[in-house]
Computed example of a mutant assay.
Amino acid sequence: MKIHRLEFTQKIPVDLDTAWDFFSSPLNLAEITPKDMTFDVTSPNMANTKMYPGLIITYKVSPLFGIKLDWVTEITHVKENEYFIDEQRFGPFAFWHHQHHFQSIDGGVLMKDILHYSVGWGVIGKVANGVIVNNKINEIFNFRYKKVESLFGKM
């Protein structure tokens, strides 16, 4: 199984507490996800929930071709105002491990996402990743970059 690694960084002109409060709220993920993915958090009672180890979050998402899929992630590690990690338990990937890092810098916060994923499916998955999946993931993170910039400003 081939594991792919992607890294995305963004500087945000807010203090660390503001960045952490926004990104550690599961409901805000929908706000920074492209609308055509129809991303819906289906876990009950998430309104005031912040990330904690063991938190299970369920979603309905349409990553490709409008097909609705269930996606279940678990927050496995949290160090407040520094990082949290989500791992897929059920969903479209054979493997998904997503680190969210936050670091205070002059004038704001450096946010870094480190994603390890695998499509699975052998040769078919390799082709799908090269033709569709990798491009779609990059498209999602480019959308997030622009959306975060529109919410918090440029740095």
Rank of each mutant, 00 (worst) to 15 (best):
I85H: 03
R5W: 02
K68A: 15
W96T: 13
K147N: 12
T58E: 02
I3M: 10
I56V: 13
I137K: 02
G130L: 07
T42Q: 00
D106L: 10
F8K: 14
R89V: 15
A30G: 10
A128M: 10
S150I: 13
G107A: 03
P26W: 01
L69Y: 03
W121F: 15
E149T: 15
H100W: 00
N129M: 10
R89T: 08
M51V: 15
H101M: 07
H116W: 08
F102R: 07
F8E: 04
Y52T: 15
W20P: 08
N81I: 12
V133I: 14
T42C: 06
N138L: 08
N135M: 12
D113F: 01
I56K: 00
T76D: 01
K154C: 11
H97N: 09
A128S: 09
F141N: 14
D36G: 02
I56F: 01
F84G: 13
G125V: 15
D86K: 00
I132G: 06
L151K: 15
E139C: 09
K2S: 09
G130V: 11
N45I: 10
V133K: 09
H116C: 11
F93G: 04
P34S: 12
L151N: 09
E87Q: 01
K68P: 11
H100L: 03
Y117W: 13
F143H: 08
V127F: 09
D17I: 13
Q99Y: 04
K2E: 05
K35H: 06
R144Y: 03
G108S: 06
L29Q: 09
V41A: 00
E80Q: 07
S104T: 13
K147G: 13
G130P: 10
V61Q: 02
G125A: 13
S43T: 09
P26F: 00
M1E: 12
D17G: 11
G54L: 07
E82H: 11
D40Q: 08
S43M: 02
T38V: 12
P13T: 10
K11W: 05
F143L: 13
G66I: 09
E139I: 05
Q99W: 08
V148L: 13
G125K: 05
F23T: 09
I12E: 03
P63K: 02
V119K: 01
I132Y: 05
F143W: 06
T42H: 01
M155N: 12
I132K: 10
F8Y: 15
K136T: 15
G153M: 01
G54Q: 00
F90C: 01
P92G: 12
N142E: 12
V41E: 00
N142F: 13
A128I: 15
G130D: 01
T18V: 11
